[in-house]
Write a protein that binds this DNA or RNA. Structure first.
Lengths: 92, 92
DNA sequence: TTTATAATTCTACATTTATCGATATACTAA
DNA sequence: TTAGTATATCGATAAATGTAGAATTATAAA
């Protein structure tokens, strides 16, 4: 990977975290091992379609991954290595 | 400072860095101790008014500071402590 | 199969924002 | 004072984006 690519990769990650809803999602997942979209919906005051939109972006930039499916539930996890490579998240 | 405030503060910093031009400016300043707007203009392909706009945002979120004025030159520096508290910048 | 639930995708809309030219401000030198 | 230069601010515009309702897909249970 060249400099320009890694630059854009970092930009994507910071842009993903530079939005209050998405940073909330990530912080929540840092405390919960794994969560489904509806479990996140219970904790944060947003519609499922909105959360789905944000989850997609967080997966695309590598901050999260879809780790497991059980029935209709999709469980997401933090990619801790990706996070560690770019950010220092302050605990709530 | 409460949780919500520190959350918003982190969001501002990540949002500031989640834009290619601003991340370029910050990386440049990490290598140059201090730089003026026109010195940055020499290295990055943007107009002064655009850079001024970005520098303002980077100062507002605490990533940079206006460290020194000499004549009409305004020299900016990285706030390394702020940066260290929130991000791990990959070297170019 | 039908019904219900979880998640995603689609569509629309309002808001934000990156960029840059024009203008204004601040400082220096002649 | 006048001219020149460095920044900052203003105004306009095109593009990106967060949100949520509607529709769609996928899975499970009755």
């Amino acid at each position: 990977m060249n400099k320009e690519q890694s630059h854009q990769e970092a930009v994507k990650i910071y842009k993903a975290l530079g939005e209050p809803t998405r940073l909330h999602i990530v912080k929540l997942l840092c405390k919960h091992d794994e969560l489904s979209c509806s479990q996140i919906e219970e904790q944060l005051n947003y519609k499922g379609s909105t959360l789905s939109h944000h989850l997609k972006q967080l997966v695309e930039c590598g901050v999260l991954r879809l780790a497991r499916k059980e029935g209709t539930y999709h469980f997401y996890r933090v990619n801790q290595d990706t996070l560690d490579r770019h950010v220092v998240l302050q605990p709530d």
